[in-house]
């Protein structure tokens, strides 16, 4: 049986895990803003220490939580080198053809790499401590202000919930179709690019047909029952934010505000 994939989520009971997903998501946005705005040493230090503290408090296994950063080391290295050598500084330490190594460039490279690494670490903390389900419902409730620019927020929320419900079913069906075509001789395991390309159509067309058939059945059933839009549905009452959620928001806002103080 297929179940909903759990993504990056790692089960835990740390204070970070327990913070309400809405507060966590908002804090995350504030912290991202802090990273983007950071321009001074003190500002960077604040964000860096805070991120490290988050990782420690959340008791996540570091290897998994920071795995993405480790896997992308080559990307970081290239970004660093490109900045270091191509930064247009006044007084290069060394220059040859189009390459100009400079202190300004090295600083700029380190700056960019640190920024991206911090963003990745922060998003890791968010996704590792929040289940995808909690996250999507948090997203749905944070979308509400979009009503002002006439986005049909309720309908979007309905579409997202339906999409999530479809994931396990479609995964299972995809698996079956793949097996059926394999038994008929489709060569999914082949190394040749041509064989792989040949496998795409026998797999993708049945998947789409089966998915659209389900969509057709569901929408017909919904219309038959008089569904006209999500506006009038009764909604589950959301729990109010607790003290620790507000504290998380407050601290994140403070880290963000620090960036303005040390510019």
């Amino acid at each position: 049986m297929s179940r909903l994939p759990t993504g990056q989520y790692i089960y835990g009971e740390s204070p970070i895990h327990l913070i309400d997903a809405r507060a966590k998501l908002l804090s995350f946005i504030l912290l991202i803003a802090a990273v983007v705005l950071a321009s001074s040493f003190a500002g960077y230090a604040a964000v860096f220490c805070f991120t490290a503290a988050l990782l420690w408090i959340s008791r996540l296994p570091l290897g998994t939580a920071l795995g993405a950063i480790r896997r992308l080391w080559l990307f970081f290295f290239v970004i660093f080198l490109m900045n270091a050598f191509f930064f247009e500084a006044e007084n290069p330490i060394f220059s040859w053809w189009i390459f100009r190594l400079s202190y300004g460039g090295i600083a700029q490279g380190a700056n960019v790499v640190l920024r991206v690494a911090l963003l990745m670490a922060l998003s890791s903390v968010l996704t590792c401590t929040t289940t995808p389900m909690d996250m999507t419902s948090a997203l749905q409730s944070l979308m509400k202000p979009l009503k002002i620019i006439r986005v049909p927020v309720e309908d979007v929320a309905m579409i997202i919930s339906v999409a999530i419900q479809f994931i396990p079913t479609l995964l299972e069906e995809t698996d079956m179709i793949k097996k059926a075509q394999t038994a008929r001789g489709a060569r999914f395991e082949s190394r040749s690019l041509r064989h792989k390309a040949e496998c795409v159509i026998p797999l993708v067309i049945p998947i789409f047909i089966s998915a659209f058939r389900r969509a057709d059945e569901l929408s017909t059933a919904m219309e038959a029952r008089g569904y006209r839009g999500a506006k009038n549905r009764t909604k589950r009452k959301k729990e109010p934010l607790k003290a620790r959620d507000l504290a998380a928001l407050f601290i994140s806002a403070a880290i963000c505000a620090v960036q303005f103080c040390f510019r």
Binding site: M158, L170, T174, K178, K196, A211, A215
Partner: peptide, 25 residues
């Protein structure tokens, strides 16, 4: 309604299709 549900299914496929091809090298 039909457009909404088809959109939902397409969103679900955005999650499912990459997983289906993940095992194909």
């Amino acid at each position: 309604v039909k457009r909404s549900i088809i959109t939902a299914v397409c969103i679900a496929l955005c999650v499912v299709l990459p997983m289906a091809f993940h095992s194909v090298k």
